[in-house]
Design a protein around this nucleic acid. Structure first.
Length: 233
DNA sequence: GCGACAG
DNA sequence: ATCTTGTCGC
């Protein structure tokens, strides 16, 4: 699929912040849906060694699933290095170049992109899912495994139970229980998506497990790619 | 000032 | 994210 060229990559947190400020106005947050995506791509990155610095070896994967059957339709994986150190709030700058490369390797243009992390539930309302939405123009959502920003009440114990994730009086996402009795996941919209449809999609994708099948597939693919032959002269 | 802090 | 043993459950 096509992905817009990346802006010059920031070398400092200050430069990264400036880019988020510049791109945020391009976000489209008044669209509902996608109501019935036929294809959904899951994105994830795995690392080797070095935990949080720049230059760590990594593998980024994009896996397209049939949203109804959860069958894998297409896979794309690339290896590379971390483009930025891990800084909460600037997480996207670490993985975006590799993820974009993985997306460009897809023949398919998915109806929805499911990212590992947050969308607007972010200190400056511009998490990874938002950034990827602006770069691709596609509807994106963020699904995170742990909390980051916002307050919430624990959702009910059954699959489908949810409670709002709020910050400063506004709802920035939803804490969603995807299976009975498991820890909930944190869903937030990224670009051109509505929270209700986002949660519907996550619930459909998390039919058999706590995490969406998209995330699980991308995680496995990226991890396997890293385990395989490291270099490739 | 002191924690907390997506992956 | 990744480093790690054993252990409980389907």
């Amino acid at each position: 699929m096509e992905v817009r060229d990346l802006h010059p990559w920031p070398a400092t947190p200050e430069a990264a912040l400036a880019i988020q400020d510049r791109l945020r106005p391009l976000l489209v947050l008044d669209e509902p849906g996608p109501a019935e995506p036929r294809t959904v791509a899951g994105l994830d990155v795995s690392y080797a060694g070095d935990g949080g610095g720049t230059g760590a070896r990594l593998a980024a994967a994009a896996v397209v699933l049939d949203a109804t059957t959860l069958d894998v339709l297409e896979e794309s994986v690339v290896t590379g290095t971390a483009a930025f150190p891990y800084v909460p709030g600037l997480f996207a700058f670490r993985e975006l170049p590799a993820l974009v490369e993985a997306l460009r390797g897809l023949e398919t243009t998915p109806d929805l992109l499911a990212c590992d992390g947050y969308g607007v539930a972010h200190p400056r309302r511009f998490g990874l899912a938002c950034h990827l939405g602006v770069l691709t123009g596609l509807p994106t959502i963020g699904v995170a495994k742990t909390g980051f920003v916002g307050a919430y009440e624990p959702p009910g114990a059954r699959r489908g139970d949810a409670s709002p994730l709020t910050e400063g009086g506004e709802v920035v996402g939803r804490v969603l229980r995807t299976q009975d009795g498991v820890k909930p996941v944190f869903v937030s919209v990224g670009h051109r998506a509505g929270l209700d449809d986002a949660c519907r999609a996550v619930l459909d994708l998390a039919r058999d497990h706590r995490l969406p099948e998209t995330t699980r597939r991308a995680d496995r693919l990226s991890r396997d790619a890293l385990t395989a032959r490291p270099p490739a002269a």
